[in-house]
Protein backbone atom coordinates (compact mmCIF):
# COMPACT_ATOMS: atom_id res chain seq x y z
CA UNK A 1 0.00 0.00 0.00
CA UNK A 2 2.72 2.46 0.97
CA UNK A 3 4.97 1.50 -1.92
CA UNK A 4 2.17 2.48 -4.25
CA UNK A 5 1.89 5.85 -2.49
CA UNK A 6 5.62 6.43 -2.66
CA UNK A 7 5.52 6.26 -6.44
CA UNK A 8 2.70 8.79 -6.73
CA UNK A 9 3.92 12.22 -5.69
CA UNK A 10 0.51 13.81 -6.16
CA UNK A 11 -1.30 11.47 -3.81
CA UNK A 12 1.65 11.53 -1.46
CA UNK A 13 1.48 15.32 -1.18
CA UNK A 14 -2.30 15.15 -0.81
CA UNK A 15 -1.95 12.61 1.99
CA UNK A 16 0.54 14.81 3.84
CA UNK A 17 -1.74 17.83 3.47
CA UNK A 18 -4.70 15.96 4.91
CA UNK A 19 -2.78 14.49 7.81
CA UNK A 20 -1.26 17.82 8.87
CA UNK A 21 -4.55 19.73 8.65
CA UNK A 22 -6.41 17.86 11.40
CA UNK A 23 -4.82 19.57 14.36
CA UNK A 24 -5.57 23.14 13.33
CA UNK A 25 -9.12 22.32 12.30
CA UNK A 26 -9.95 20.54 15.54
CA UNK A 27 -8.04 22.75 17.99
CA UNK A 28 -8.45 26.25 16.62
CA UNK A 29 -11.67 26.48 14.64
CA UNK A 30 -14.43 25.31 17.05
CA UNK A 31 -13.75 27.90 19.70
CA UNK A 32 -12.94 30.77 17.39
CA UNK A 33 -15.93 33.08 17.81
CA UNK A 34 -16.26 32.43 21.53
CA UNK A 35 -12.61 33.22 22.21
CA UNK A 36 -12.98 36.50 20.32
CA UNK A 37 -15.58 38.01 22.69
CA UNK A 38 -14.60 41.10 24.71
CA UNK A 39 -15.54 41.67 28.34
CA UNK A 40 -18.81 43.56 28.89
CA UNK A 41 -18.46 47.35 28.54
CA UNK A 42 -14.85 47.13 27.39
CA UNK A 43 -13.72 50.05 25.23
CA UNK A 44 -10.98 49.79 22.62
CA UNK A 45 -7.72 51.72 23.06
CA UNK A 46 -7.50 55.40 22.17
CA UNK A 47 -5.36 56.42 19.19
CA UNK A 48 -2.60 57.63 21.51
CA UNK A 49 -2.61 54.29 23.35
CA UNK A 50 -2.54 52.43 20.04
CA UNK A 51 0.45 54.52 18.98
CA UNK A 52 2.05 53.53 22.29
CA UNK A 53 1.29 49.88 21.59
CA UNK A 54 3.11 50.31 18.27
CA UNK A 55 6.12 51.76 20.10
CA UNK A 56 5.95 48.71 22.38
CA UNK A 57 6.05 46.56 19.23
CA UNK A 58 8.74 48.61 17.51
CA UNK A 59 11.12 48.37 20.45
CA UNK A 60 9.97 44.78 20.94
CA UNK A 61 9.25 45.02 24.67
CA UNK A 62 7.74 41.52 24.59
CA UNK A 63 11.21 40.08 24.06
CA UNK A 64 11.52 40.44 27.85
CA UNK A 65 8.08 41.24 29.25
CA UNK A 66 4.93 39.12 29.31
CA UNK A 67 1.32 40.27 29.49
CA UNK A 68 -0.20 37.10 30.89
CA UNK A 69 -0.82 36.66 34.61
CA UNK A 70 -1.29 32.95 35.24
CA UNK A 71 -3.80 31.71 37.82
CA UNK A 72 -1.28 31.00 40.61
CA UNK A 73 -1.21 32.71 43.99
CA UNK A 74 2.45 33.60 43.48
CA UNK A 75 1.49 35.47 40.32
CA UNK A 76 -1.69 37.19 41.56
CA UNK A 77 0.21 38.34 44.67
CA UNK A 78 2.93 39.82 42.50
CA UNK A 79 0.99 41.24 39.55
CA UNK A 80 -2.73 41.40 40.40
CA UNK A 81 -5.80 39.47 39.17
CA UNK A 82 -5.13 36.68 36.71
CA UNK A 83 -5.73 37.49 33.05
CA UNK A 84 -9.06 36.82 31.32
CA UNK A 85 -9.54 35.94 27.67
CA UNK A 86 -11.99 38.79 27.03
CA UNK A 87 -9.45 41.41 28.12
CA UNK A 88 -7.43 40.67 25.00
CA UNK A 89 -10.32 40.80 22.54
CA UNK A 90 -9.11 44.04 20.92
CA UNK A 91 -5.40 43.14 20.94
CA UNK A 92 -4.14 42.71 17.39
CA UNK A 93 -1.62 41.15 17.64
CA UNK A 94 -1.72 39.55 21.10
CA UNK A 95 1.31 40.64 23.12
CA UNK A 96 1.52 37.91 25.76
CA UNK A 97 5.24 37.36 25.22
CA UNK A 98 6.98 34.10 25.99
CA UNK A 99 9.83 35.15 28.26
CA UNK A 100 10.03 37.10 31.52
CA UNK A 101 13.50 38.54 31.62
CA UNK A 102 11.66 41.46 33.23
CA UNK A 103 8.35 41.33 35.15
CA UNK A 104 4.86 40.90 33.70
CA UNK A 105 3.19 44.12 32.55
CA UNK A 106 -0.45 43.13 32.09
CA UNK A 107 -1.65 45.28 35.02
CA UNK A 108 1.25 47.68 35.33
CA UNK A 109 -1.16 50.62 35.01
CA UNK A 110 -2.44 49.75 38.50
CA UNK A 111 0.83 50.24 40.32
CA UNK A 112 3.17 52.43 38.26
CA UNK A 113 2.74 56.08 37.34
CA UNK A 114 3.75 58.36 34.48
CA UNK A 115 6.68 59.92 36.34
CA UNK A 116 7.90 56.48 37.44
CA UNK A 117 7.98 55.30 33.82
CA UNK A 118 9.69 58.49 32.68
CA UNK A 119 12.53 58.15 35.17
CA UNK A 120 12.76 54.40 34.61
CA UNK A 121 12.95 54.51 30.81
CA UNK A 122 15.74 57.11 31.02
CA UNK A 123 17.85 54.98 33.34
CA UNK A 124 16.42 51.70 34.64
CA UNK A 125 19.22 50.80 37.10
CA UNK A 126 18.76 54.15 38.83
CA UNK A 127 15.19 53.22 39.75
CA UNK A 128 15.70 49.47 40.13
CA UNK A 129 19.28 48.79 41.26
CA UNK A 130 20.85 45.80 39.46
CA UNK A 131 18.34 46.04 36.64
CA UNK A 132 19.71 44.74 33.33
CA UNK A 133 17.20 46.65 31.22
CA UNK A 134 18.78 49.18 28.86
CA UNK A 135 17.73 52.84 28.79
CA UNK A 136 15.35 53.84 25.99
CA UNK A 137 16.50 57.40 25.58
CA UNK A 138 15.64 57.47 21.86
CA UNK A 139 11.94 57.27 22.76
CA UNK A 140 12.29 60.82 24.11
CA UNK A 141 13.70 61.98 20.76
CA UNK A 142 11.62 60.06 18.20
CA UNK A 143 8.14 61.13 17.25
CA UNK A 144 5.32 58.62 17.71
CA UNK A 145 3.47 57.68 14.55
CA UNK A 146 -0.04 58.71 15.56
CA UNK A 147 -1.30 58.79 11.98
CA UNK A 148 -0.56 55.09 11.56
CA UNK A 149 -2.28 54.41 14.87
CA UNK A 150 -5.38 56.22 13.57
CA UNK A 151 -5.25 54.18 10.36
CA UNK A 152 -5.10 51.06 12.50
CA UNK A 153 -8.16 52.11 14.51
CA UNK A 154 -10.11 52.76 11.31
CA UNK A 155 -8.99 49.45 9.84
CA UNK A 156 -10.10 47.35 12.81
CA UNK A 157 -13.36 49.30 13.03
CA UNK A 158 -14.24 48.59 9.40
CA UNK A 159 -12.89 45.05 9.17
CA UNK A 160 -13.69 43.61 12.59
CA UNK A 161 -16.38 45.96 13.98
CA UNK A 162 -14.20 47.07 16.86
CA UNK A 163 -16.40 49.71 18.51
CA UNK A 164 -14.72 52.98 17.56
CA UNK A 165 -17.05 55.98 17.15
CA UNK A 166 -18.62 57.22 13.91
CA UNK A 167 -15.98 59.92 13.57
CA UNK A 168 -13.40 57.24 12.65
CA UNK A 169 -13.39 57.31 8.84
CA UNK A 170 -11.00 56.28 6.10
CA UNK A 171 -10.38 59.83 4.90
CA UNK A 172 -7.53 62.21 5.55
CA UNK A 173 -10.06 64.89 6.52
CA UNK A 174 -11.37 62.66 9.30
CA UNK A 175 -7.83 62.17 10.56
CA UNK A 176 -7.14 65.90 10.52
CA UNK A 177 -10.29 66.38 12.58
CA UNK A 178 -9.28 63.70 15.08
CA UNK A 179 -5.66 64.78 15.49
CA UNK A 180 -6.27 67.54 18.08
CA UNK A 181 -7.90 64.96 20.36
CA UNK A 182 -4.75 62.83 20.28
CA UNK A 183 -2.62 65.87 21.06
CA UNK A 184 -4.90 66.75 23.98
CA UNK A 185 -4.49 63.21 25.39
CA UNK A 186 -0.73 63.52 24.96
CA UNK A 187 -0.72 66.84 26.85
CA UNK A 188 -2.37 65.21 29.85
CA UNK A 189 0.37 62.56 30.01
CA UNK A 190 3.17 65.08 29.39
CA UNK A 191 1.89 67.31 32.22
CA UNK A 192 3.25 64.72 34.67
CA UNK A 193 6.64 64.56 32.97
CA UNK A 194 9.81 66.56 33.55
CA UNK A 195 11.94 65.98 30.46
CA UNK A 196 12.61 69.22 28.55
CA UNK A 197 12.65 67.46 25.16
CA UNK A 198 9.16 66.14 25.81
CA UNK A 199 7.82 69.54 26.88
CA UNK A 200 9.31 71.19 23.81
CA UNK A 201 7.89 68.59 21.41
CA UNK A 202 4.42 68.80 22.96
CA UNK A 203 4.44 72.61 22.73
CA UNK A 204 5.22 72.22 19.01
CA UNK A 205 2.26 69.88 18.53
CA UNK A 206 4.37 66.72 18.29
CA UNK A 207 4.03 63.52 20.32
CA UNK A 208 7.29 61.85 21.42
CA UNK A 209 7.28 58.04 21.45
CA UNK A 210 7.69 57.93 25.22
CA UNK A 211 4.42 59.83 25.77
CA UNK A 212 2.46 57.38 23.64
CA UNK A 213 4.19 54.42 25.29
CA UNK A 214 3.36 55.68 28.78
CA UNK A 215 -0.26 56.25 27.74
CA UNK A 216 -0.35 52.62 26.63
CA UNK A 217 1.34 51.29 29.79
CA UNK A 218 -1.07 53.31 31.95
CA UNK A 219 -3.98 51.69 30.10
CA UNK A 220 -2.78 48.20 31.07
CA UNK A 221 -4.99 47.51 34.08
Amino acid sequence: MFHWLEKNPFFFAAAISIVISFAGLIEIVPNFSKAGRPLVDMTPRTVLELAGKNVYMKDNCMACHSQMIRPFKSETDRYGDYSLSGEYAYDRPFLWGSKRTGPDLHRIGNYRTTDWHEAHMLNPPKIVPESIMPAYDHQFENEADIETAYAEAVTVKNAFHTPYGDEFKRTRAAWDAHRPKVLADAKIIAADMKDERVKKAISEGKVPEIVALIAYLNSLK
Binding site: A35, G36, N54, S85, E87, Y88, A89, Y90, D91, R92, P93, F94, D145, E147, T148, A149, Y150, A151, E152, V154, T155, V156, F160, R170, R172, W175
Partner: peptide, 14 residues
Protein backbone atom coordinates in the same frame (compact mmCIF):
# COMPACT_ATOMS: atom_id res chain seq x y z
CA UNK B 1 -2.92 57.12 5.99
CA UNK B 2 0.23 56.43 7.95
CA UNK B 3 3.07 53.99 7.38
CA UNK B 4 2.67 51.76 4.27
CA UNK B 5 4.54 48.94 5.98
CA UNK B 6 2.20 48.70 8.96
CA UNK B 7 -0.44 46.00 9.18
CA UNK B 8 -2.88 44.64 11.73
CA UNK B 9 -3.40 40.95 12.48
CA UNK B 10 -6.57 39.24 11.23
CA UNK B 11 -6.89 37.50 14.59
CA UNK B 12 -7.22 39.06 18.03
CA UNK B 13 -6.13 38.13 21.56
CA UNK B 14 -6.58 34.48 22.50
Amino acid sequence: LGNPLHSVSMYAGT
